[in-house]
Design a binder for these strands. Sequence first.
RNA 1: GGCGAUGUAGCUCAGACGGUUAGAGCGAGGGCUUCAUAAUCCCUAGGUCAGUGGUUCAAUUCCACUCAUCGCCA
Length: 619
Amino acid sequence: MAKNRVLVGVAWPYSNGQQHIGHIAGAYLPPDVFSRFNRMRGNDVLMVSGSDTHGTPITVLAQQEGIEPKEVVERYHPLFIDAYVKLGLTFDLFTHTDTQVHWDVTQEMFLVHREKGYIYADTQEQLYDPVAGQFLPDRYVVGICPYCSSREARGDQCDNCGKLYNATELRKPRSTISGSTELEVRATEHFFLALDKLNADLLAWLKDGKEEYWRPQVYRFTLSELERGELRGRPITRDIDWGVNVPVEGWEDKRIYVWYDAVIGYLSAVVEHALLSGDPDGWQTWWKTGAGQGSRVYNFIGKDNIVFHAIIWPAMLLGRDGFCLPYDVPANEYLNMKGRKFSKSRGISISINDLMERYQPDAWRYALTAMAPETSDVDFTWDDFIERVNNELVANWGNLVNRVTGFAYRACDGMVPEPGELEPVDATLLAEVRKGFMEIGTLYEGVHLKAALEACRRLSQKVNQYLNAREPWQVIKSDRQQAHTIIYTALQAVDWLKIMWAPILPFSSQMLHEDLDTRAGCLADSTLKQYRMPVASTSSCATTMPVRAVNGPQPICRPANRCAGRGSCLQNWMPTRSWPGRRSRVFAVPVQTKRAGPTVNGPIRSRVGYGAAVEIHWL
RNA sequence: GGCGAUGUAGCUCAGACGGUUAGAGCGAGGGCUUCAUAAUCCCUAGGUCAGUGGUUCAAUUCCACUCAUCGCCA
């Protein structure tokens, strides 16, 4: 495994509705912060995800609205992309599961698993609706709970008492498709993934050092599941007509169950990225083990998804030889709205597509990182959001930048001053800030993003303290040279801090980057290595560079207006500047036309039949 | 029901192979300062660390159980 290759897999959102800030805080912003850090660190990073286009949530919604599942996907997929771009999420590829590549990769994996004996066929008894002429998977049937007699129990589980059962045990079952209660129990054949055969291997993989760095709740949950040794075969096909075809003769009327194909997206998206990059075999560099190959694979998810990413997907990879298994699965808990789960149906929701209409991206990135539910569920409140942005981000870091660059601009003719001999206090400050590269870098690397944010804030405070102690605005009246030394020191500290902040605050860091050096390029293209230099010879804050060429520095971030949540209070909180695109990334692929009939495929690089990619620029 | 997690100052969270006065930020009260985005900086107040029982010389930190909340149960 090559340590400097980092593959960041982000949970695949169901494209059956808009996402809310709970999703962002839990599973979408953290991988971006992490990826940005790794890129600046000089690692090769590939961050991929896409819309999960299959599954009953989508077909149910389509049925309700009387439209095709594809139309549901086409409605929400672009909304995801729009919000991600505005928030500055740097996906190398955000695709979806209805691409030819994904179908090919999925079917290939299915065939390999089957050939190796990890997939077998078995019959199940299931409810059949003669009126609709189809079998009824769990979400398509309701009835009376066999245990607590609750009405409106779902096909597989009762919401009231939480019991699990087979739909055939339901009393008075009713089809949600036709409404019919004249249901039959029929035998139906399905393929199963033999997880039991992989239980021991999974346990060995988990126990091989994962306890050292996995989040405790993820590790313990996974461990307890595996140690019981009771993993069972799990059905991977269903009697539906939306999803990836089963690549076996005689199975044309069934589809691969969404959970099996969705996680394969982590592989198929890399394959697709390789094809788009003109290097069809490039995916192996990321996924295959062996000399000079492989990567550290991270899967950022919510806590509801742990079983799929820490057990099932690793099992599927073990079922093929020579593939990298997840290195870490940093699952987050939930960000809730005042103790209640975000729920679109109950009107408890802040959609991610609303976020950028209200506040600038870095405000969200800061607040949601600070509030991140890393160890337990967290309540989101607007007051909390406003206070964090105004009293922490703006007051501490934003104001520091403003006072330092502003004073430097006015007192030193818009140039970074030539420092004299550093006093011990000056050198001490710079030494402390420089240590932050190591300390904060370690935190980012271990995905302790909240702690990294706090460490950044603490260092920013050190610089504020330093300024209050040194008072350059007083010193300059009597000793110009010493004042210049102080300003230089503060500027250097701020210049370093902007790098430490950059993964969380890419937009404002870029703004400051340009304020300190008008010839500066894109900060996201820089690597931390460049900045690990002794103060005396640092080039990042070169003494001949203007602090800001024309009108003096502008605030890099501004206070948030108190009327958040009620709309139309945005005028003073939009990004203060915009940039031309600096860096292009293949980002989105339009939903392609649904293909007809089953596809029994050959090698996975044989087809490139997907729609045109879109180039997106990001910082 | 089973498994896992969470429950620490008003709020959001840290923390401790068990051991002197349990930490931070925000909020609150007071003060200095004015380079700065009514920001900074300093000081103060605030907690019987969910409850009960157990192990121990000593537990908030380990164990058991209870309660509340969340996730998973293929």
